[in-house]
Design a protein around this nucleic acid. Structure first.
Lengths: 347, 347
DNA sequence: CTGAAAGCGCTTACAG
DNA sequence: CTGAAAGCGCTTACAG
């Protein structure tokens, strides 16, 4: 493989001149520049990434820490990954994908070894073990997900409180008086998925304010458990007319649960989920939803991270919540007949 | 950040001795080694990845090229990625994830710049444009998917011919005489998804051999098109008693299509898919399937690639097909009544 | 068993 | 506008 020395020799200039001609970091005569470019083309020269990283202390690589926990719904994560990967590339960065179980060790490894210029953490927990490591690291970090302590990092998350309020208010406005909310599994919360609480508490508050009943549950994140649970919930609350889902697995399972009971949305039951549009398409979900916008969050995290890497922004750290959009898929309507039981399967 | 020079100084040895103590590449007295280790611990020393890559020409990074084509089903790809990522890590390698649209350019970039020691290509097409680039590259490559020309690369794929035969024979043994096969979209084939042909042709051959009718179709890879198409196919072939799916989107859509028609598998229709067990769980699919084993394929590709990188295997390139396993989920049974039409929705 | 030195392929002050 | 030199942080022949 050709080195910059080969390019310089062929162009008849010094290595520094060749380097400057390529970087444009100092004025070069047109004639010399042309000769250098010609040599580059002729030799098929590409700078050696390791050598450049060593010389500049810039790898042009961003670390992406994505944990695929057994109790989370993997396809939901994919969208964040693609959002991060695509926007990193647009900004000239490659992605070092780390899916190791032991996220702390992985983070320490890639930051200590200077393999990356910065890091994006997905799936951030309330009291995330990776954060102390990140704060000690020389590289900046951006999180998707809100931890208890945001010091020293840039944080991006959906406004789950607003999402909870929106879900409830939307159905209240249509005339619903009794709702059921199915959240993520309880161990997600225990592990530190504070967003589950944020949405649920805001939903409860909104319900109390409007004087409607809201039953809240934690649902499994796996089939077939979640399907059975949904069935039980519908049995347990025959007078509820609205179903709110903050649980991707539940959303994915709902169509067959409903059709198994002979129910349709919104005729028999109004349904609002919280997931991305892409997720809805993939799983063919016909329910209106609070758009969780993983791609937007991923993009924002990367942009801010790159700004920080490139010292354009050395300023204070940000904590940004994006306002949820409501994706209308016509799965909500006024309740069939206030107070009367929802239709049941006819056997 | 501490360098090996700092370690050497603190341990009171030369840099080379410190380096050898850490690599174990030459004999070191116990006493010196202990001093070096102590210094490493005290300083929290981690070797600089770029410097090491420059000195050794080894990055300990594997490039993973995953294209997320709009007409393919993204969640199916995730499993390959995780298989590759996890097994690479076990072998000491990190993953540079490249999801760029322009796979050729990306591949050229990461190989020419020596950012990776080797490359895994996912989603390989019959006449894949990335292959000429890969053959010119200095690094070895492993493919998941079978191209027309396997020269210079290691290739791993499911034995789709065997898969096609298995699907047909399984249903024939149960007494079915008329089957429908839904494959991936036609443009996947046109782009070079030869595996679609391989499965379909083998299925047709097996059907001819057994004297049973096999209707073959290309299905969409998106909702809601694929759902509509499945409905049309079932309408068009009322006497068919078995449905074969070589199309993940079709498999994901089938449960609601069937329940919409009041049909159940295997009572009313026998169904066999071709997808991974993980996929079946995620989508809660109750159909027996030919296991596509993405994790196994990813692992095999990585192991072979790493062997080649580390010169343990400089030998001839391999083309390996893995035999499909049949994952029994009890969605097949003898046809209800040979020759009589399948039950239809009662309205 | 250990050390001094060269070299990997870049970039970037320093000089002119 | 250009060149010679130092340096980034490692590893590894070469010497002893």
């Amino acid at each position: 493989m050709a080195t910059i020395g080969d390019v310089a020799k062929l162009a008849g200039v010094s290595r520094s001149t060749a380097s400057y001609a390529l970087s444009g970091k100092r004025a070069i005569s047109d004639e010399v520049r042309d000769r250098v470019y010609a040599a580059v083309r002729q030799l098929g020269y590409t700078p050696n990434a390791g050598a450049r990283a060593l010389a500049t202390s810039q790898t042009m690589v961003i670390g992406l820490l994505a944990q695929f926990l057994p109790d989370e719904f993997a396809p939901a994560m994919l969208q964040y990954i693609l959002g991060v990967s695509d926007s990193a590339r647009e900004l000239g960065y490659d992605i070092l994908l780390v899916t190791e179980e032991d996220g702390t060790r992985a983070l320490k490894r890639i930051t200590d070894s200077r393999a990356v210029d910065g890091v994006v953490l997905l799936n951030v927990a309330e009291d995330d073990e990776r954060l102390p490591i990140l704060r000690e690291a020389a590289q900046p970090g951006a999180l998707v997900g809100l931890p208890a302590d945001c010091a020293g990092v840039d944080v991006f998350d959906l406004d789950f409180e607003e999402a909870g309020r929106m879900m409830v208010e939307h159905l209240v406005r249509l005339g619903h008086r009794e709702l059921v909310l199915v959240s993520q599994p309880e161990h997600v919360v225990q592990r530190g998925g504070a967003y589950v609480w944020r949405l649920q508490n805001a939903a409860l508050e909104a319900a109390a304010l409007r004087g409607v009943v809201l039953h809240t549950y934690f649902g499994a994140s796996r089939q077939p458990e979640i399907g059975r649970q949904l069935t039980q919930l519908l049995d347990a609350h025959p007078t509820a007319t609205g179903l709110l889902l903050n649980n991707e697995a539940a959303a994915a399972a709902l169509p067959s649960v409903l059709s198994g009971r002979g129910l349709r949305a919104p005729e028999d039951l109004s349904v609002v989920g919280r997931y991305s549009d892409e997720f809805a398409r993939t799983f063919s979900l016909p329910y209106s939803s609070i758009e969780s916008a993983p791609d937007r969050l991923g993009r924002m995290a990367v942009r801010t991270l790159v700004d920080r890497i490139e010292r354009r922004a050395g300023g204070p750290h940000v904590v940004r919540f994006i306002s949820p959009d409501f994706a209308e898929r016509h799965s909500t309507a006024p309740p069939r007949a206030a107070g009367s039981p929802a239709p049941r399967r006819d056997h």
